[in-house]
Design a protein around this nucleic acid. Sequence first.
DNA 1: TCAGTGATTAGG
DNA 2: CTAATCACTGAG
Length: 190
Amino acid sequence: MTKPKTKTDVFTKPQADWIEVSPEFFRGRAEEIAPQLPGMYLSHETAEGFRALQISEVEIYSGESDSACHASRGRTPRSSVLYERSGTLYVYLCYGMHHLLNIVTFEEGFPEAVLIRACFGAEGPGKLTKALGITTAYHGLHLENVPELRLWTDGRTYPVTALPRIGIDYAREEDRIRPWRFITTRRREI
DNA sequence: TCAGTGATTAGG
DNA sequence: CTAATCACTGAG
């Protein structure tokens, strides 16, 4: 009989081995940042308490030349947040119901972000924001001004696979096949 | 497979 | 102003 493994989807407090990740983490290119996100933890502290989930999947949306990116038609009232400095939050309502969380990467003036697409225990970009209580109230704010939202790493290594993005049938073929979705199937075992 | 639900965008 | 679209989800 093997040792029983305890599974926890929602962490109600930071774990002993967690180290905070500074908003400066997002200064680089999304292509170097995104593969490091699966395995990290996203936490939200509200009146209800502290809740964190482990990220399992992210996607890159990068540049006006990426036909899947909301900045593909240049600066608009909606896409302008993507041009802000790295660490800015881009949260938008999809299908009138689902709050999708992105974090802006790279230099101010270049529209690029990572979408948090899934966490263990909340598979889907709309589900994880619902589970954590993240809404468009944070849209346009910078992470350093939202202390209730934090990113953590446990210092462990999580194997990551790159795959094409999901839900972008409207995009050009070259953008649809781009391996800009990063997933890990390795989950923290307590 | 398909409807729900509302913000965003292009176009007249 | 109108109408189409949508980085989704859950029910049938």
